Simulated assay, not measured.
Amino acid sequence: MFCKKIIYVWVLFTCCLAHTQTVNEVFQKVARQYSLAKPLQYKSSYALYKDFDSKKIEESYKGIYYKNADNEVYSKVGETEILNAKTVYLKISHPEKALQISDPVPNYAGDFDIKPLLELCKIEKFVDRKTYWEIRLVAKSYSNLPYSKIIVQITKGFLIQKQTFYYSTVANFSKDYRSPDPHYPRLEIIHTNYNRNPVNASIFNSKTYFTTSAKKEILLAERLKKYEIIDQRVSNK
């Protein structure tokens, strides 16, 4: 239900950078941690709740994030894999049995351009919890963000340990269209096991996923052979 939308959601911690110099410094140091030319890896867990105060998890996913010293990034959320390497961007959807090939996304690892989002939300609260900082972001009324509020916890090592997204749009949790069950969900993402250990280089090699023949035909790896190929590279047009 929500897996497609959460593929990009972890970057939203940079959606606001204002309010006080202290908050500025924290966000800037967080961005530097994720864009350092060093390996980085961590695990994530995603949990969706029906309401802002619900205790029961409705859907959950596991995720992993790998980055190498060249700032190439591989991530997996649920059954979706994403690779942003020097020469290619791949998105593999196992439920849809599809592999999307695009040109690489510049500055994908952490140097995010936050300026377009500065007018969409404001920092409501910044609290030092001794072992981490807690920052509460509130979407402005005219923004088109699907969230009314975002709470971010940042460790004293300037890494994101938790994000909580409060949706401002209604989701129907009913499996029976005749009996809708509308709610404003809450999504919690927890990041753990941060380390700078190198990752197997093959993960970032596009040849692990596909090769190109002399006739410029795309040949998928064995595990992906039956997948649909969606080639969106501008360089191939």
Rank of each mutant, 00 (worst) to 15 (best):
L83H: 08
L187D: 04
Y49M: 07
K86M: 11
H183L: 06
R196H: 13
H191E: 13
R129Y: 06
E124V: 06
V26W: 02
R178W: 05
K216V: 03
D111I: 10
L118G: 10
C16K: 10
P39F: 01
K43I: 00
E124S: 14
T87W: 00
I151A: 11
Y74D: 06
Y74I: 07
E58G: 01
C121D: 09
K86T: 14
N172L: 12
S35N: 11
K215N: 10
Y184V: 07
L187Y: 10
E81I: 07
R186C: 15
N144H: 14
F2H: 14
Y42N: 12
Y66A: 08
H19E: 12
Q41V: 03
D70F: 01
Y61H: 05
F126E: 10
A221R: 04
S102R: 09
K156Y: 09
F13W: 13
V73E: 11
D111K: 12
K175S: 14
K115S: 15
F158Y: 10
I229C: 12
Y132V: 00
R32H: 02
V88A: 09
N195C: 13
P95H: 07
F158L: 01
V152M: 03
E58D: 06
N193Y: 13
D128Q: 03
K55D: 04
N205C: 10
I123A: 15
A139C: 11
Q163H: 03
N24A: 04
S54R: 00
D103V: 08
S143M: 05
L90M: 07
R196E: 14
I101N: 09
V26G: 04
V88M: 10
S179G: 08
N200V: 12
H183M: 09
S213I: 13
N205K: 12
V77C: 08
F204T: 08
N197Q: 15
K115G: 05
I123T: 14
Y147P: 05
L137M: 15
A31E: 11
H19R: 13
L145G: 04
L118V: 01
L159W: 11
D181N: 15
S35D: 08
S235K: 08
I218Q: 03
D53P: 00
Y147Q: 05
E58F: 07
S179R: 15
A171E: 13
F204I: 09
L17C: 08
V26Q: 02
L219C: 12
A214C: 07
I151R: 12
Y46G: 02
H183T: 05
I82K: 08
L48N: 01
V170R: 08
K175Q: 15
N71G: 04
E58M: 06
K162G: 03
S75K: 14
R32F: 01
P198S: 13
V152G: 01
N68C: 02
